[in-house]
């Protein structure tokens, strides 16, 4: 899938030139003349990144970045500034910027930084997709299997689990076998690591309150 670069800059000729450069090397480019326009119209589903001018009349780039940072799965943001003083660049990086460039930007550097941001976004998306798969597998467990799963990964023995759930060790073993098959893991170690990646560890010690 072609990466989309969102260029947000109030200067028309800079915007056009950078869009041209990026499309020349094969990126899809969408231009926005203000942060407000970006917030209203941007479609952020495709992989890519945002190239954001620090200084715009209505909402500044920094303010926009702060808003974006609050969103889930934000695209990486590369800041561009007309004059690169250190305080602004520090602010930008603190606000979670992927990178920081100063106009006029060296062409190779610009292309490299944008490419890196896109690559990072793609990687992040791949990880998210994988987690989604794992999550849907967890969703496929029965309520009992989920309870067993929660206790197993907290290091409980089958016997302890059977006591806690008011069941027999044999039944627990059977549930445990089934859930490992559904989650496509071979060992207890893998099971624990999966739970960890999905953030299922350490949040709550009472499996009954988990909604799954």
């Amino acid at each position: 899938m072609t990466a989309t670069v969102h260029v947000v800059d109030d200067d028309a000729s800079w915007r056009k030139s950078v869009a041209r450069l990026l499309s020349t090397v094969g990126h899809r480019v969408v231009q926005y003349e203000s942060a407000a326009q970006f917030l209203e119209t941007a479609e952020l589903d495709a992989p890519g990144c945002i190239l954001l001018d620090m200084r715009m009349p209505d909402i500044t780039g920094l303010q926009l970045q702060q808003r974006l940072a609050g969103m889930q799965h934000a695209l990486p943001t590369v800041f561009v500034s007309g004059h690169g003083d250190i305080p602004t660049s520090v602010l930008a990086m603190k606000a979670g910027a992927e990178n920081f460039l100063t106009k006029p930007v060296d062409t190779e550097e610009l292309l490299r930084v944008v490419q890196e941001a896109i690559t990072r976004d793609r990687e992040a998306r791949a990880v998210r997709r994988h987690l989604d798969v794992l999550r849907s597998r967890v969703h496929g467990l029965t309520p009992t299997e989920r309870k067993v799963f929660a206790l197993v990964v907290r290091g409980k023995l089958n016997k302890q689990i059977a006591d806690e759930l008011g069941s027999t060790e044999r039944t627990i073993k059977w549930h445990r076998h089934n859930l490992m098959e559904k989650l496509q893991v071979q060992s207890l170690a893998e099971l624990v690591s999966l739970a960890e990646r999905l953030g299922l560890l350490g949040e709550d010690d009472h499996p009954n309150s988990r909604s799954g």
């Binding site: 200067d11 030139s17 950078v18 006029p104 930007v105 190779e108 610009l110 292309l111």
Partner: peptide, 13 residues
């Protein structure tokens, strides 16, 4: 820097 930046980008393209 706005026009200079645009010139640089255009030259690169």
């Amino acid at each position: 820097n706005q026009p200079l930046g645009a010139i640089r980008n255009n030259a690169g393209a």
